[in-house]
Amino acid sequence: MHVGDALLSPVVGGTMWAATAGVTAYASKKINIELDKDKIPLMGVMGALVFAMQMVNFAIPGTGSSGHIVGGILLAVLLGRNAGFLTMISILSIQALFFADGGLLALGANIFNLGFFACFVAYPLIFKPIVKKGYSNRRIVVGAVIASMVALQLGAFSVVLETVISGKTLLSFGVFAALMQPIHLAIGAIEGLVTAMVLVFIYKAKPELMEGAVGLPKQKTSNKKLVAGLLICTVLIGGVGAWFASANPDGLEWSVARAAENSGVEIVEQADDALIKIQQETAILPDYALREGAGAQISENGQTSIAGIVGAGLTLAFAALIGFAIWLFKRKKAAGVQ
């Protein structure tokens, strides 16, 4: 579910960075007070664990396919929401930096989509209330499944919003949301089930690992600030969404109409139709006659295409030449040294 740099505009990427920085500052401030130092290596190795666990494939019952988990809820339950969030940051940063998963610009958005919704929305507002009366197998399963599904739905929706607002592709809001949400409903259910099984096992084997499961006096942490922050986020996202919706009324209507009649199948059919027609409809050189609803006409580099092509060729040749020259120079120098 990582968004890539190429899909986000700098404004959207920057906004998500700012949002993430805010949450991060809050989390690391909270944690300095509440953290006992032995949690630091625990967070580190748990991060490595969740990172490595994404290579493990779980068989999805009845489908013959398999998938891996993201681990946000698992981290929040085992480490608490603040430490869980910071651990997600380290995982996603390493993925962005060393494995090019996501990217620097999109890192803020990815942390928000995968970490914030799991640790600061689904965990405190869904999982915790469900297990409030004390842990039991049933409560853990119900809580983990619902929390994971909600977290992934919010994350997926956020991906759709960020991508559509960025406008790096003309995928309409409706189409994109209809593709993303149902898929992530299924992914969320699996994620929730795996998380639940793992938590049930840990609850039986070592309950003290789960935050507030045994012994410790109940922490009185106020959720007021969190709720206020969430409200602000909701208003912001709602406002942006509404603005966006009014700019593209047909896209939204379309998605609402489809949502009402159990979208999945319809969308797939539509995509199939489109695939069948792909040859005629997406030919590199369509007819001059514009079909109905062909969308906005965008002119780029009006009459300068020849110049553009010549220039492009020259630019690339120039880049290659410089690279080659440096390489040659270096080799000569190395040979001279030897």
Partner: peptide, 23 residues
């Protein structure tokens, strides 16, 4: 997906192309 759904038209010199491919 952009190739499939993006039906906008891009002018490049004297020719017209579907935007999806450029995208």
């Amino acid at each position: 997906f952009a190739v499939i759904f993006d039906r906008s038209i891009v002018y490049f010199g004297s020719s017209v192309y579907y935007g999806g491919w450029f995208n």
